[in-house]
């Protein structure tokens, strides 16, 4: 695997959009060509090289390429958007829309990440060591279907609307989740190791949510369906619920007994 190393230098206060930071775009390119790729600062089109030092060597194919960003990229939006292969490693924080609509490959962030990461992703894997913003793995506004495949792991806490309208795939949260985790879920698995925020599973039609910690308050439109032993490879006792009955849903919500 070959590696391209980026180091942010003086990211402007109004932030930037850099969907070109993706193995699909970097593959087959020289360092000079990579530096010349577009990034967008407000209404101005700029060159990637103006804001990042670029080192290393690109591979021919995206699947053989790892992009490492060392430093604070919290004001850089859309890293790895639509990527299909390869790796993006961020040693620091990342901005909004990280890996939005990605279909393959892997993204790892050592810090925290802004909202809309993994929006409508259809494959690949995202790991966040820190906390995540809102709408991780969710659908865009108005669209019925969110994440359709792939895996998301958040080691810290997740924001609101985690996995909204997800159709398939797997999301795990090491810490707590915000409000409306798994809202409108139609399939897939969502595992929250800590506590789930209010209205977990609201509007879910199908799929599985597992909460290892506590749920402060269950929606009145979920019905208890008894105790089970072990769910999806997690051992021990859980209380199972079915919902969201407000939407004639048959989703399963398991809470550690």
């Amino acid at each position: 695997m070959k590696e391209i190393r980026l180091k942010p230098k003086a990211i402007p206060g109004i932030g930037m959009e850099a969907e070109n930071i993706s193995p699909d775009m970097f593959a087959e390119k020289s360092l000079k060509e990579i530096r010349a790729l577009d990034v967008f600062v407000g209404n101005k089109k700029k060159k990637l090289g103006e804001y990042f030092t670029v080192g290393g060597e690109a591979s021919e194919k995206p699947e053989d390429l790892r992009i490492v960003i060392r430093g604070d990229a919290s004001k850089v939006k859309r890293i790895g958007e639509r990527m299909s292969a390869g790796e993006v490693i961020i040693e620091g924080d990342a901005g909004m829309h990280l890996g939005s609509r990605m279909s393959g490959g892997e993204i790892r962030v050592s810090g925290s990440v802004g909202s809309w990461a993994g929006m409508e992703m259809s494959g690949g894997r995202i790991t966040i060591e820190g906390d995540a913003g809102n709408f991780f793995g969710a659908a865009y506004r108005g669209r019925g279907c969110g994440m359709t495949e792939g895996e998301i792991e958040i080691k810290g806490n997740a924001g609101h609307n985690l996995g909204g309208n997800m159709g398939a795939g797997r999301i795990t949260v090491g810490g707590d989740s915000g409000e409306f985790a798994g809202v409108g879920m139609k399939g897939g698995v969502l595992i929250i190791s800590g506590n789930a925020g209010l209205r977990v599973g609201a509007g879910m039609i199908d799929g599985i949510i597992i909460v290892e910690g506590g749920i402060k308050e269950m929606l009145p439109s979920f019905k208890e369906r008894g105790r089970v032993d072990g769910v999806k490879g997690l051992s021990g006792a859980f209380i199972g619920y079915e919902g969201d009955l407000a939407e004639c849903g048959r989703g399963r919500l398991y809470v550690r007994d």
Binding site: A202, E217, L219, P220, S221, D244, L245, A246, E247
Partner: peptide
């Protein structure tokens, strides 16, 4: 919660 109850 109230709306959810009415819908159910």
């Amino acid at each position: 919660e109230l709306m959810s109850a009415v819908m159910a």
